[in-house]
């Protein structure tokens, strides 16, 4: 046991409140440490701490008034406003009474930061969802077009489809790029027939492959 520890145990050592093992350790330390022994002796020599009390007649009058006042308050059902609510109520009431140590400014700042973080996370999540949907749509379009191109490549020079691989129109979602038809490489002459299936549908095709929007 070191000096710091011993000097932290002076009061319980002198009050007889230390467990036996620690008491013996302190005793062993002060046998060899003059400084700690002097500290313990000086604390032991302190005059007793006695509680100051008012004279009896004053006390009697005081506590008569105390009893009467308490009766009155309880009879009136007066709550001092320090009733102990629980949960959020306790926190709010504590803040209002300044019994909670966290300053209100810090609490408000913390709340604001948390709200901003939550908003940011929600916004980010929505944007990521949109991007994922968009990528999925584009991939579907690309795959469909690749299949069409493969069929077109396999077509014989006389324009007949290979067996079992007849061309069928590809219907693209409205979100497909409007310039998709124009972007297709010209091969056997590009033509377009807008509005063949209603106003919102456009057919873009070269030869047999038809891309319909």
């Amino acid at each position: 046991m070191n000096c710091w520890r011993v000097q932290n145990l002076v009061a319980p050592f002198l009050d007889g409140e230390l467990p036996d093992a620690e008491c013996e350790a302190v005793g062993a330390h002060i046998e060899v440490c003059a400084e700690c022994l002097a500290v313990i002796e000086s604390v032991e020599a302190l005059p007793p701490l006695t509680a100051p009390r008012a004279p009896q007649e004053l006390e009697a009058a005081l506590f008569d008034r105390f009893d009467a006042c308490l009766k009155e308050r309880l009879a009136a059902g007066i709550d001092p406003g320090i009733d102990a609510p629980t949960g959020v109520g306790a926190a709010v009431a504590g803040l209002a009474r300044r019994e909670v140590r966290v300053p209100m400014v810090a609490a408000a700042a913390w709340l604001g930061v948390m709200v901003m973080l939550a908003g940011g996370v929600a916004l980010n999540h929505t944007k990521v969802q949109d991007l994922e949907d968009s990528v999925a749509r584009r991939e579907a379009i690309i795959q469909a077009l690749q299949e069409r191109v493969a069929v077109a490549d396999a077509r014989s020079d006389d324009g007949t489809d290979p067996p079992g691989r007849a061309m069928a129109p590809v219907f693209l979602p409205p979100s497909a790029p409007s310039a998709l038809g124009a972007a297709l490489p010209p091969r056997r002459g590009l033509y377009s027939q807008p509005g063949i299936v209603g106003a919102s549908v456009r057919q873009a095709s070269y030869d047999a492959p038809r891309v319909v929007r």
């Binding site: 000097q7 932290n8 145990l9 002076v10 009061a11 319980p12 500290v39 000086s42 604390v43 302190l46």
Partner: peptide
């Protein structure tokens, strides 16, 4: 303990 030492 500390306040008692300080008190002295």
């Amino acid at each position: 303990s500390r306040p008692k030492v300080r008190l002295h």
